[in-house]
């Protein structure tokens, strides 16, 4: 049945979106700003995965770990070098967004200069792992891997947030960073942890995207837009919302492409974004978004 196949396609796409969106939403909920540099982590790790798999060892788990670690590192570096000084100065949140944009432009063009604008495709052995059939639908093995890893990562994250002490700190700080600091929470350390988690997830997302879509300079920025849409759809600031939003977006996109018109898919996604922001900015599960006085 075509519908089942499209549904599976949508969930596969959604799982990749989810890895990106969750990291972005985590940062947003803690620090109330949109990290435009999130895409940088994704792109960089896609390339890291390419280099590791092409020149060192063609092994997916190794690739995932390398991407995870690099993502973590890059994200923390970005936080410490760019966002931290601004936050210390209590800069307007918009400034952080602009700085993120600047970083993302820099990174994308540096990659084009040093690694050439042409895409880098992962080794063929990784690309042709075969598929399995479920009823009348087919799903690639790699997509199952991606789905599996994503689910594990996301469930792990939710557990961490709900049960651990750090998780409690994060939840508290997401209401008010300043109050949390007054209560004795080390907010500096917390921010690093949050960026690290977001970076790690984004890194893994980058690795998977590299496999499925090849590594190319604009990879991060094009997927970041989808992450925004998913986050807004699910509700900015809500982690479960981010996950739900991502899967819904993935499935909706595929359905639009399959049943309505394949070229209207992106028009649909962006229009959805605008409509939600206009009609229900809090999304499905999010918090208030009005400007405070």
């Amino acid at each position: 049945m075509l519908f089942l196949q499209q549904l599976i396609n949508g969930l596969a796409i959604g799982s990749v979106y989810a890895l990106m969106t969750v990291g972005y939403s985590l940062i947003y909920s803690l620090m109330s700003f949109t990290n435009f540099a999130h895409g940088v982590v994704v792109t960089v790790c896609a390339y890291v995965g390419y280099f590791v798999l092409s020149f060192f060892i063609t092994n997916i788990p190794v690739g995932i770990i390398c991407a995870l670690v690099s993502g973590l590192a890059v994200s923390v570096i970005i936080e410490l070098s760019t966002y931290r000084p601004l936050l210390l100065r209590n800069a307007k949140r918009l400034y952080l967004c602009i700085a993120g944009l600047g970083l993302s432009i820099m990174a994308e063009n540096l990659i084009i200069i040093f690694l050439s604008g042409r895409f880098k495709s992962y080794p063929a052995e990784v690309l042709t792992l075969g598929n399995i059939t479920v009823g009348s639908a087919t799903i690639g093995i790699i997509d199952l891997v991606i789905l599996g890893v994503s689910v594990v990562a996301l469930v792990g994250l939710e557990l961490y947030i709900r049960t651990s002490k750090d998780g409690l700190a994060i939840r508290g700080a997401s209401f008010s960073l300043d109050n949390a600091s007054i209560m004795g929470i080390n907010t500096d350390g917390l921010m690093i942890k949050v960026f690290a988690i977001a970076g790690a997830l984004a890194g893994v997302a980058g690795f998977f995207c590299g496999i499925k879509y090849t590594a190319y300079p604009k990879l991060g920025s094009s997927l970041t837009n989808k992450a925004f849409i998913s986050a807004v759809l699910g509700g900015l600031g809500s982690l479960p919302g981010a996950i739900v939003g991502s899967f819904i977006l993935g499935v909706l996109e595929v359905m639009v492409a399959g049943y309505v018109s394949s070229t209207l898919r992106d028009v649909f996604s962006f229009s959805l974004l605008v409509i939600i922001l206009l009609v229900k900015p809090t999304g499905l599960m999010g918090k208030s978004s009005e400007d405070k006085a």
Binding site: L2, Q5, Q6, N9, G10, A12, I13, K212, Y213, T214, K218, S222, E253, V254, M255, A257, G258, S261, S262, T263, R265, D266
Partner: peptide
């Protein structure tokens, strides 16, 4: 159809396969 810079064609390909 797909747009320039699209990387995932599974929706279209599934329709075609059908």
């Amino acid at each position: 159809g797909y747009k320039t810079d699209d990387v995932d064609f599974r929706a279209q390909l599934s329709t075609i396969k059908d």
